[in-house]
Design a protein around this nucleic acid. Structure first.
Lengths: 330, 330
DNA sequence: AGGCTGTCTGAAAACGATTTCACGACCTGC
DNA sequence: GCAGGTCGTGAAATCGTTTTCAGACAGCCT
C-alpha cells in the first residue's frame, strides 16, 4: 500500500504538498501538481481511510438502522439510501434492529467512537429518544436523522410520509364505495407510524359519522401471517366486513389470502387496501390497491441533509405525501 | 470523548497500562487493573475505532456486496450475515451492486484503503475474478468470500447452495408427476448460479430421456414481470406446458399470475415450482412449492470463516443442499 | 553481598494522513 | 535600494491507539 510519503518521494516534494494537491484547499504550483498527480497514478495511491478519519475526526460512513431489512419497504429504502450515500462518497453501515431496543442502544452508544458521519434510524418501533439526542447533541458532529417518525420536536431532523392523511384518504375511498363496515389491521399501540395510520382510519370514520368498532380492529405485527390470521378468525366468527384497510402490503396480502380461502371474492365481497406499494403487490392477483411509498425521494432528502453537513440549515421536518394507487383489490 | 490518556491520568497509570488492561495480552497487576477498569467506567471510555484501525492495520468492518437487496433471498442473507458479524463485534458495510460491474470494481478497489476485515460477494452475475483475486491475494489480510458462486478453484473461499442437484430433483419430481412438457424460466447465460440451475433442469430431462425444447426455455431476469410475461406470451401463443420450473420465487409467482389470468388452474393445469423460499411464497395462493434456501447456515459459515481470520484452515468450498418444499403449486 | 531471574511498568516510537507555522523567493511600489 | 506583500514549500506537530524497549524493583540462589 502506497502512502503519501511514497508519493511525495516519487514526485520530489513533501507529504504536505501531496496532501495539498489531493485536497485542494490551498495553492500549489502547476509543476508540483502535475508531478504529484503523475506519482499518484503511478503508485495507484489511495489515502488510508483510517488515518484520514483519525486526523479529521470523522469517518466516511453512515449508519442505517432499520426495523426489519426483510420487509419490502425497508429493503427498498436501504437500496436508495445506499446509492444516495455512494454519490457523496460515503459508505453505509447497515444494522438490523429486529425490534430490539437493546441493539439500538448498543449501536447508538458505539456511534461516537466509530466516528460516524451520520445515523439514520428507520423503524416504526418506539425509540428511546434520550439516547438519540445524546448522539445528536453530543458535539461529535454526527448528523442524526429519523425516517418514518416525527421526532423534530425533540431536535431530530425527520423525514416522514404523511401517514394520517394517506390512510384517511383511502379509508374515505372505501366508505364512498360503500364498503362498510371497514376493518383495520396493523400495528397500533407500540408503533408510532402505526398509531398515525390508525389515526387516519379513525378520522375518516368520524368524518363519515361512523363509530370505531373495536371488534374490527386488530393490533398486530406487519407480517403476512398476522393478516391471514386476523381475517380468518373474524370471518370464521361470522363477523361481517365490507372493506379492510391494512397497515402494510404484507398484511393486506395475508388478508386477501384468508378471504379467498373462505370462498369470498376480493374486491366484490370484501375490498382490501394495503400500504407501502411493495413490488409484489402489483403482481399479485387481484393486484393490490395500496398507498404509495417514496423511498427514492426520502433518499434524496437524506443525501441533501448529510451532504450539507452542519453548514446549511435544513428543514427539521419533511413530509412526503402518499398517494392512493387504485388496482384491483379495492 | 475520553481517550486512553484521560483514563490513564485518572487511574494514575500510563496509557500503555490502560491498553494492556483492555486488550489483555500481557500481565498487569491486580490493583492497576481494577483502577483502570474503574476509570474506564467512570469516563465511559470507548476506544477510537479509527485510531485502532490505523495502528492495527485493520478496521472493524466487513463489506457485503449483494446483487439486489430488494430481492427476498438477498435481504434474508443480509440480515443473517449482519447478525453473525455483530456476534464477532464487526460491522457490516452494505453495497448494492444492481448488476453493475463498474460498481463492483470501484468497491473492490477501495477495499484495501478502507482496511476492511473481509469482503463478501453475493451475486449471481458474472464476476471479474482478477479484481477479486487482487484483493484476496494482496497482502492486506482481507478475507474474501464468495456466496453463491463456486470460485474456490480461483482461490476464493466459497459457500454455495447445491443448485444443480436441487433443480434436478424438483424437475425430476415434476416429471414423475407427469407434468410434461416442462418449461424453465430464469437467468441462464450471464448468471453463474443461473446456468447451474439450468444445468439441473437439463440433467433431469436427460435422465428421463426427454429433449430440451428451446421454445420452453426463457433466459430472463429474476423479477415478477419477467415470469408473468414469459408465461403470458407462451400461453397466448398456444404453447402447451405441463409444468414450470422457475429460477426464483419471484419469477414463479409471476408465472402463476399469468397462468391464472388465462383461467388455467395451478397446479391442476400447470404446476409451478420456485426457488428460494421467500416468505411470501408460503402465503400466496396457491402456496408456492419451492426449493429451500438457508441464509442462516450460510451466515454461520461466514462467521466461522471471518472469525477464524487467517489462522485456522477453513474449507475452500462449502455446499449447502437445497430441499424441495412441497406446498400447493406443484 | 552480588548476581540472576522474573514481574510489572512507563517512555517513546510507530501507524498515515492533515495542518500549522515559519521561511525563502519573488514581486511591487515608493 | 528597501520595506512590505504574496506565493509556494517543507518540517514538525497532531489525531488516539498499540507495542517495543528498557528500566525498576522484588525475590531467590550461590
Amino acid at each position: 500500500m502506497a502512502t503519501v510519503r511514497d508519493v511525495a518521494l516519487l514526485a520530489g516534494v513533501s507529504p504536505a504538498t501531496v496532501s495539498r494537491v489531493l485536497n485542494g484547499r490551498t495553492v500549489v504550483s502547476p509543476e508540483a501538481r502535475t508531478r504529484v498527480l503523475a506519482a499518484v497514478k503511478e503508485l495507484d495511491f489511495q489515502p488510508n481511510t483510517m488515518a484520514q478519519g483519525l486526523r479529521l475526526g470523522r469517518g466516511t460512513s453512515v449508519a442505517l438502522l432499520v426495523g426489519d431489512i426483510e420487509q419490502g419497504v425497508y429493503s427498498a429504502l436501504t437500496r436508495h439510501i445506499q446509492e444516495a450515500l455512494a454519490e457523496l462518497g460515503l459508505d453505509l453501515l447497515l444494522y438490523n434492529l429486529a425490534h430490539s431496543e437493546e441493539r439500538l442502544l448498543r449501536i447508538l452508544e458505539r456511534a461516537p467512537s466509530l466516528r460516524l458521519r451520520g445515523v439514520i434510524i428507520a423503524t416504526a418501533d418506539v425509540i428511546p429518544i434520550a439516547a438519540l439526542q445524546a448522539v445528536a447533541l453530543g458535539r461529535s458532529g454526527i448528523v442524526v436523522l429519523s425516517v418514518g417518525q416525527r421526532l423534530h420536536r425533540h431536535g431530530i431532523t425527520s423525514i416522514v410520509h404523511g401517514e394520517r392523511a394517506a390512510v384517511a384518504q383511502s379509508v374515505g375511498y372505501l366508505i364512498e364505495q360503500g364498503r362498510t363496515p371497514i376493518a383495520y389491521v396493523g400495528r397500533i399501540a407500540e408503533s408510532v407510524t402505526g398509531s398515525d395510520r390508525f389515526g387516519g382510519y379513525k378520522a375518516a370514520l368520524a368524518r363519515a359519522g361512523l363509530a370505531v368498532d373495536r371488534n374490527l380492529v386488530w393490533d398486530v405485527a406487519y407480517r403476512y401471517n398476522a393478516g391471514y390470521e386476523a381475517l380468518s378468525r373474524a370471518l370464521d366468527a361470522g363477523i361481517v366486513i365490507g372493506g379492510v384497510q391494512a397497515g402494510s402490503d404484507e398484511l393486506a396480502l395475508g388478508a386477501v389470502a384468508a378471504i379467498r380461502d373462505r370462498n369470498l371474492r376480493v374486491p366484490e365481497d370484501i375490498a382490501v387496501i394495503g400500504l407501502g406499494d411493495i413490488e409484489l403487490g402489483a403482481h399479485a392477483r387481484p393486484a393490490l390497491t395500496t398507498l404509495s411509498a417514496h423511498p427514492k425521494l426520502i433518499a434524496e432528502k437524506v443525501r441533501q441533509i448529510i451532504g450539507a453537513g452542519e453548514s446549511r440549515k435544513v428543514p427539521a421536518l419533511s413530509v412526503i405525501p402518499r398517494k392512493l394507487i387504485l388496482r384491483q383489490s379495492a
